[in-house]
Design a protein around this nucleic acid. Structure first.
Lengths: 188, 188
DNA sequence: ATATATATACCAACCGTTCGGTACAATAGA
DNA sequence: TCTATTGTACCGAACGGTTGGTATATATAT
């Protein structure tokens, strides 16, 4: 391997932030190039299919982070409260306390839907299933657990939208704080 | 006066749908032109400041619809259940059962934020205040009512995001159905 | 020597915008 | 009543600039 100034990993991280800030359409190659520190040609070296590949890489990048920092802790060892606490802390960090958008939201707009089919859905599903398992473990029947998980995911996504509109992350923090009671409370 | 093929009102309605489908960046002049039936240049007759004016008109258009079909019914006469029912039906219609996006979400992305400052926030605030008054009328203390209203708005926005990601409006309908109990239940 | 990586230069297509001009209806003056 | 003027509605063509993408050449590291 040759020496590299910017690793592909670094480039993907930078690119991901551009997509998260501007959405698919707003993430121009100029911005992508500038943020990653890579020239146009270098970008096409790492991402042969151009913007589409970059968006896919960004999606996978975020999916990996969610898997490692949110879903795995939820399925790991320890008390339910402790595991949920870790996952919520990770979500707070991932969305910078409510200041940054969710790729699920951004990649489900306009043409991005057709360019990246299924990405948004699979991310929502993964988180939803993990929450559902937590609720079941707390004693909820499968149907009830599924509904609670759906509400938790909705609260996260909705709070991110409202937080962005209000220009304040407070509402997102409040929503995160509600998740434990939403999933665990009043079980049979 | 010349014969009018397309009224400005019709143009605004068509333009609004383009912004709702593609977001600010994705709503190109070509698409706006095609959807409204007006030539690219003709759009500048109605909207002298171009795309920015069109986005503002779309925002006002939606704000008016929300005011007339959601907020006014909430503040009108009749039983709480009846008024809430009207508002929820209007929301279901406005978002086509969860199939279309919310401008609050789309206009709070990337550069649209700076192009249309405050629009998203004012729309969120108006709906939130209306919900809060409903909860207070049902017996909730102001602080509790405010929180319930915030949760209702979050559920609406979040369910729209999840519905779009899943390609199904079912989750949005479920969220709308939860709003009455969310605002009215378990009051002192 | 070979594969990887980056730079330079370029492309057609499209972007939002502007311009010059046309069609038409209402108004004003004779 | 007829004509001249005005103002609105709209369009085709073109503007400079940017888009996403490519081809070719050069550099670097093994």
């Amino acid at each position: 391997m040759p020496a590299v100034k910017t690793t592909k990993e670094d480039a993907v991280a930078a690119i991901t932030e551009v997509f998260r800030s501007y959405g698919y359409d707003g993430a121009s190659l100029s911005r992508l190039s500038q943020a990653s520190g890579l020239g146009r040609s270098s970008l096409y070296h790492y991402f042969p299919n151009g913007k589409e590949d970059m968006a896919k890489a960004a999606g996978e990048h975020i999916a990996n982070i969610v898997m490692e920092t949110v879903i795995e802790p939820l399925e790991g060892a320890g008390s339910l409260d402790g595991r949920l606490g870790k996952a919520i802390a990770a979500l707070s960090k991932l969305y910078d306390g409510g200041k940054t958008s969710c790729l699920v939201d951004l990649f489900a707009i306009g043409e991005a839907q057709t360019v990246l089919p299924g990405l948004a859905k699979s991310m929502i599903d993964a988180l939803s299933v993990a929450f559902q398992r937590v609720a079941e473990e707390a004693g909820a029947a499968r149907k009830d657990a599924k509904l609670r998980a759906e509400r938790a995911v909705i609260e996260i996504e909705g709070a991110l939208v409202v937080a962005r509109a209000q220009g304040s992350g407070a509402v997102f923090q409040r929503a995160l704080a509600r998740i434990p009671s939403l999933l665990l409370e009043n079980q049979a």
